[in-house]
Simulated scan of single mutants.
Amino acid sequence: MPLDGQTQTLNRIYKDRDAQDVLTHAFTSFGDMALVSSFGAESVVLLHMAAQIDRTVPVLFIDTEMLFAETLDYQRNVASSLGLSNVQVIRATRDTLFERDNENLLHLHDPDACCALRKTEPLQKALAGFDGWISGRKRYQGGDRHALELFEVDRPLGRMPRVKVNPLARWDSSDLRDYITTHNLPRHPLVAKGFPSVGCAPCTTRAGSGENTRAGRWRDTSKSECGIHFDNGQIARSA
């Protein structure tokens, strides 16, 4: 069955199943799968679920080299506490960074180009050897994510389509908090400091009371996605 038909069928079958079932199916039915994690504010939930299934699952962590020091510490601590033994740190090459952003100022005048250089391109190269990947996106985050499906077809530019799975698509912030509390999981240290969503340090601010969780990402710009998510070959955007 073509990949589009497979994902449509799976979305019907799993529409009332829990996230752990979705994740288990992803790991056992699509060949080589990678879990892509920012080790951000909510990442520990999906990482914990994955660790219950297979602690050797490939976890791709994109280090833009502009992350908060707290995120780097958190990544190491979470991987260790959950026993995740196959965390792969993905970075742009030294030569590429020197050629396109040798002063580390690209984010100031072209944040899309900075994300492409430091996130999208390294991730696409890392995913080239996998049959699909798992993301932590959720509908409640807003924008184009409001209609997010559990199973999607990922169509990156210039590459073959592959499956993309969003086990937490239907979860909201209270579901995440309850899971973290129930399993006594470590929280990202910046959450308590007013960062409900954590990206690169130069492009992330605190979110005010009542704001969307992603309000602090690229504040006062039209940008709202880093570019690692594609829809029909185009970068996914949220309003």
Rank of each mutant, 00 (worst) to 15 (best):
R12Q: 15
M33Y: 07
L117R: 10
E103V: 09
T205M: 08
N104V: 12
G142E: 09
A128I: 03
V59T: 01
H183K: 04
F151V: 09
N232L: 12
N11D: 08
D231L: 03
R162H: 09
D220W: 02
V163E: 01
A239E: 14
T93H: 06
A147D: 15
S222H: 13
L35V: 13
P122H: 02
L123Q: 05
T9I: 09
V191I: 15
C226E: 14
T182K: 14
M1W: 10
M1E: 09
I53Q: 13
G143W: 08
Y74T: 11
T64D: 00
P202A: 06
G199C: 02
S173Y: 11
H146F: 14
L150R: 11
Q75T: 03
A147C: 12
A69C: 10
P156F: 04
L168K: 07
D18L: 06
D144K: 05
K138H: 04
L35F: 01
D54F: 00
V165T: 14
L108K: 15
S197N: 06
R12S: 15
N166T: 11
W171S: 08
P156L: 07
V59R: 03
L123C: 04
S85H: 04
A50I: 03
M160C: 11
G143P: 00
A239I: 14
V165Q: 02
A201Q: 14
M33R: 01
A215T: 02
D18H: 14
W218K: 03
G233M: 09
N104R: 14
S224C: 02
L97C: 14
S135A: 15
T28V: 02
L106R: 06
G194N: 10
S222M: 10
K193N: 14
A169T: 04
L72W: 00
E99T: 08
D231H: 12
A51Q: 01
C115H: 02
T120R: 06
A147S: 15
I53L: 15
T56Y: 04
I134T: 08
L176I: 15
V198L: 07
T9W: 11
N77A: 15
L60V: 09
L3Q: 07
L47P: 08
T213L: 09
A215I: 07
R206L: 10
L123F: 10
K164W: 08
S238E: 11
D231P: 00
H25G: 02
A126V: 05
T9G: 02
D16T: 13
A50W: 00
L23G: 12
L72A: 01
L108D: 07
